[in-house]
Design a protein around this nucleic acid. Structure first.
Lengths: 176, 176
DNA sequence: TCTAAATTTCTGTGAATACTGAAATAACAG
DNA sequence: CTGTTATTTCAGTATTCACAGAAATTTAGA
């Protein structure tokens, strides 16, 4: 059992709430926060005791976090148990999360929109308005996902620089 | 009751599922999809019948959508009832949604991170590791929210152009 | 001011989800 | 091979969330 400072508790609780608002299980998010804010890798029982949740719940939540790719198993010499640690580079972490969400949610949505539009265009009971709306939605998802694909290749430093440019970037790139 | 084509049904159902994955109530998302794909404004009863959900559910969901700012009340001459229509410009719609999520979730998170860091730095039981992690998280949220604030001012066309530049933008801006 | 329509509020119910604890399985040391 | 520890699976339970339907309130025309 890891003794938590008030600050750590506050952070973990908030992260859990944030999770729920973005469709991520509260415990999953809390475990992630705990591993992120803790200097060393923890084993499942330490997590169980620290957060007061069932061992099996921890097991499943850890699997979930691993499937996202933001938590990894590590081993400690002389200890049979699995230990878990979170990715620590925040930028990389959110890149990984975004990649997953793109793969799991954006890509299928784009596929569905294309499918819908194709069907709407060939259907007997024509609905030109729906076709139009679907087209626009499709084009939005196309543009943003492709944008993300480009942007994710940028090194963190380039992004930070780009941000600092602010409005100036529009002019520099020649989009008046 | 609005007769829905298969395509419309498919789109509405998918949108509902997408909603749940992003922490948005299924019915709320479905109503939004319905209003988006429908050419004219609908009254609450039409929505009730079309989606087969309770009148009260529609009422609450519509209030939620209005609080987000993506659905508006309109009136039809000679009809007392409120009619509802969705914003149709997809880019503007997502800008509005992002603004709200920033306001509701990002800004408070950033505030909490600052608070945590301040407390962690002055606490008796020093935890330099936590301070470090909180700092990095804070800086990430600062950078991304400020980035978003800049970017949301860009006209849609500029964003599309920017996307099409792809990797070239890095060179053009001089971030090698 | 009265009445009827429209809308919202509220409370109980149902469904989905999260969670626990026991049992089963796997991994390992002796 | 055997006993022990670690981990996962699974079935039942609890909690949360979504929803329906009734009741209350508001709105506006007569």
């Amino acid at each position: 059992m890891i003794p938590l400072t008030d600050v750590q508790k506050k952070f973990i609780l908030h992260w859990g709430e944030m999770g729920t608002r973005w469709g991520i299980n509260r415990t999953v998010a809390q475990i992630h926060a705990l591993l992120y804010i803790t200097p060393r890798a923890l084993n499942a029982e330490e997590i169980t005791d620290t957060l007061s949740v069932a061992r099996s719940n921890v097991s499943n939540s850890l699997r979930e976090l691993q499937s996202w790719g933001i938590v990894k198993v590590v081993h400690v010499l002389g200890d049979r148990r699995d230990h878990f640690e979170s990715m620590k580079d925040v930028w990389e972490m959110f890149r990984v999360i975004m990649d997953e969400r793109k793969r799991r949610e954006m890509d299928p949505t784009l596929a569905l929109l294309r499918e819908c539009r194709a069907e709407a265009e060939t259907a007997k009971d024509k609905d030109p308005y729906a076709v139009e709306r679907l087209k626009e939605m499709e084009s939005f998802f196309e543009t943003t996902t492709s944008w993300y694909t480009q942007l994710r290749k940028w090194p963190t430093k380039a992004i930070v620089k780009f941000v600092k440019l602010g409005d100036k970037a529009i002019k520099l790139l020649g989009f008046g």
